[in-house]
């Protein structure tokens, strides 16, 4: 399979993840969509690394995975705090900062 096939697959997964981020009401559901989008980016990085014979893409994918883990840890901690304070799971009702 050529590079195009892998990039198209990654674009599809990215679009699905974006759909999830836009349509989910639940804050954890939104985080899951973000996970899918970051995953799609990793596919792109590894595919470019393989087809250009350049190691940097693999290293970048490694860094992206590690940063995603940090992002999930902080994001879920924020979600737990929000649940504790507001007793709600819906992102629509988290409008404290709305003017």
């Amino acid at each position: 399979m050529g590079l195009n096939a892998y990039l198209t697959l990654a674009a599809l997964v990215f679009a699905i993840g974006l759909f999830g981020v836009l349509t989910r009401r639940n804050a954890i559901g939104i985080l899951l969509g973000i996970e899918l989008m970051l995953n799609a980016v990793n596919i792109n990085l590894v595919a470019f690394a393989r087809f250009h014979g350049d190691l940097a893409g693999l290293i970048f994918a490694l860094f992206t995975i590690a940063i995603t883990v940090a992002e999930v840890a902080v994001g879920l901690a924020i979600v737990i705090v929000i649940f504790r304070v507001r007793r709600t799971v819906e992102a629509d009702r988290l409008d404290l900062l709305r003017g």
């Binding site: 679009a15 974006l18 349509t23 559901g29």
Partner: peptide
């Protein structure tokens, strides 16, 4: 926790537009 979605069609249109844009470059 029930997991529901809202603005499904809006989201689908935006996601499809992003996909078409990326594939246009590809």
């Amino acid at each position: 926790i029930a997991q529901t979605s809202r603005y499904v069609w809006h989201g689908a249109v935006v996601a499809a537009a992003v996909f078409v844009g990326v594939v246009g470059f590809l």
